[in-house]
Simulated scan of single mutants.
Amino acid sequence: MSRSSRLLRLLHAMRTLAGPITAARLAEETGVSPRSVYRDIDALRAAGAQIEGERGYGYRLLEDPALPPQMLDEDEIEVLALGLAEVRAWGDPALAQAADSVLAKIAATLPDDRERQLLHAIAQVFRPEPRYILDFDLAPLRAACWREQAIDICYVDGDGARSQRTILPLSLFYTEECVTVLSWCCLREDFRMFRTDRIAEVRPNGASFRPRRVPLLRDYLARLRERRGSAAMAAQRTSHAATDRA
């Protein structure tokens, strides 16, 4: 393997694996020795890549100017075009505008043939109308998620009853019907999904819950996997019981 190919493979591994990534894990992923990984990381840093970390701790790629969009292949460009088109179809004006900006910026860096493919992609999304019209400003929720700041909300449930909640906003979920905010509810002391179309008021309260956001998200996703696994096992037992009766 040439040195340039090895460096590109290392960059790809650092882009796709969750950091911090140990040298041993990078060596396994790229098929070289840990000592070669250390040398290659030094070479990438010298070339301008911003890589955080050190031996014994692990590494994280912060910024990678050495691997521009020109490296995208045809399938990756189709994925990019399809994903941006889908974002524009959700009905979130801020993200739709950001998607157009991303498309223009990436197209400007591509060779002519790749630019044409991106702007006239095979994969298309057609929706005569957005999934829903958002009349709720998501900017405060996005900011609270990123800054890991608790907020106070006034929430209206399906029966019209109002309640005051203090929540730790973790993530925005775009579903078929609406946008919901996954949160840790301080009142219920558990995870809750709040529909943004039922949030009557949002007030930042200044309390920080950093760095709990990522661990809480991992906990929630782990619970989902457990529930799905239990449901699958229950369905399997029901199927076996039906077969036995037959």
Rank of each mutant, 00 (worst) to 15 (best):
P169Y: 04
Q164Y: 07
D190Q: 06
V156Q: 10
C185P: 03
R195P: 06
E177Q: 09
I153C: 07
V181M: 02
L172A: 05
V179T: 12
L170V: 01
Q164I: 10
C185K: 09
D197R: 08
I199Y: 11
D159P: 01
I167Q: 02
I151A: 13
D190N: 14
D197E: 13
D152A: 12
R195D: 13
D152L: 08
D159T: 11
P169M: 04
V202Y: 12
D157C: 05
R192M: 03
C154P: 01
G158W: 08
F173V: 08
L170F: 00
E201C: 11
M193N: 15
L187D: 09
C154R: 14
C178M: 04
A200P: 04
A200L: 12
T175N: 01
C186Q: 15
W184A: 05
S171F: 08
A200E: 15
S171K: 11
G160S: 03
I199E: 12
F173L: 12
I153W: 04
L172T: 06
C178I: 05
S163Q: 05
P169T: 06
F191P: 00
E176V: 01
C186H: 13
W184E: 05
E189K: 12
T196P: 04
E176T: 03
R195A: 15
C178A: 10
L170H: 00
C186I: 07
E177I: 02
C186K: 14
F173Y: 02
F191A: 00
R162C: 05
S183M: 02
D159S: 09
R162F: 03
Y155C: 12
A161I: 07
S183F: 04
C178R: 15
C186E: 15
L187T: 12
E201I: 04
L187R: 11
L187I: 09
D152F: 03
R188K: 13
C186T: 15
